[in-house]
Design a protein around this nucleic acid. Sequence first.
DNA 1: AACCGTCTGTACGCTATGGCACAGTGTATT
DNA 2: AATACACTGTGCCATAGCGTACAGACGGTT
Lengths: 239, 239
Amino acid sequence: MDDDQLNFRNELLRAMGPQERDLIVPHMEPITLDVPLILELENRPVGDIYILEAGLASIVARFPGGRDIEVGIVGREGMTGAAVMLGGDQSANRTFMQISGYGFKLPAPILSAAMEESRALRSLLLAYVQALLAQTTSTVLANGHAKLEERLARWLLMVHDRADGMTISLTHEFLAVMLGVRRAGVTVALHLLEGKGLIRSTRRQIVILNRRGLIEEAHGSYGAAEEEYRRLIGSPLGR
Amino acid sequence: MDDDQLNFRNELLRAMGPQERDLIVPHMEPITLDVPLILELENRPVGDIYILEAGLASIVARFPGGRDIEVGIVGREGMTGAAVMLGGDQSANRTFMQISGYGFKLPAPILSAAMEESRALRSLLLAYVQALLAQTTSTVLANGHAKLEERLARWLLMVHDRADGMTISLTHEFLAVMLGVRRAGVTVALHLLEGKGLIRSTRRQIVILNRRGLIEEAHGSYGAAEEEYRRLIGSPLGR
DNA sequence: AACCGTCTGTACGCTATGGCACAGTGTATT
DNA sequence: AATACACTGTGCCATAGCGTACAGACGGTT
């Protein structure tokens, strides 16, 4: 992996200065990331960090007794391995690919060493952890106070920010698990959004038609975390 | 503030080595922390870090449009200022005293400098951030999948871990805001727990009678984050 | 002792969502 | 073309929790 052109699509790689980038780029290995690849397993050592150029990963907390719920998502605005950035060796949560993509794999010890060496890299990645934390607290808020339809709108926007096209490809079942609700509830909520002309929903596919309208529909549960990302990392998240 | 005896009750101060402690102790100012003192204001620079020896603070996310919800709590197992530990200067959330206590106040720049200087201090505090993150994700899980009665049991346990006696002193109204539910719902849920002999609830007071039973009642929503704290910081959280 | 504000207990109808079940409709396979 | 499977649409009843309202109880103040 070399660094000749600055053609990275990952926002963190783009935000690094050449010196920081040189610390890790030589050790990055290109990799395709297909659903449902598991990037981190709960309570297990993190071997590799994944830096996404395209696609989307979900961070889920697992309820003892089966049911999961999504606590964060990672796309080309970030990378996995927050626990390593915090000096730890394992995470309490599971992370897996939700929309296929590609990116780079980096051994965790390399990242640790690079962060130890470069103050600037450390700053950037800790700022990213803070942005991730803002995303999680925003999820607490949404799950606590927002209706399913609003949470769905928020989620679609977050995925859309990290996706390439206007189309999101996944099943209602999957969405239901992410939001921690019933599959049938998702179907109904999608129809409500479709009825308002904000999306078009067909089998395994959701097309965003009216982004602004979705933001409106999310009733304040979308936006704060995204603004925080922009403030901390310097580049806007999404479009 | 001197460091003659190691009589700190704060777990992070206790977990530090003498060298790390010496970096910050001379700058710590003892302070009484009374309800409803605000320790951090959302989207405002963090001037001081608060290190609690007794009492309890809540970190709340604010819904644009009024309603708040608790995303984390801090007692003598931790300190405020996670954003500063991550190299930032402001937090997205509000933090305020919920149960009066006392502790120390430390200028944020001192903490930043100390973390820059001491690798060990940095490690400890970043590990604490990770524990805090685990607490927040555990909240996502509880709010997503657990019934009010279970969430209430979890919350009582978390407060109990950080309190000195068996008695927790606050109103149903307040509890309702923390959990993001209706005041009347809290009253009913408290009665349910009381009916099972787990607590005794009187005006402004809740007494924990059966801790083990409460853990049972929380149905898995209590425990994971606490275990993660123990793993990361090395000392058990609470009793 | 009388008063008043705060806090708690309770009730009623309403809505969102859960659990479940099953039919219908695409899409892939043979 | 027939078949099988995965996914989606829909309906039914149960229930948790909301919004609201109000009465009673406690405790501080005068």
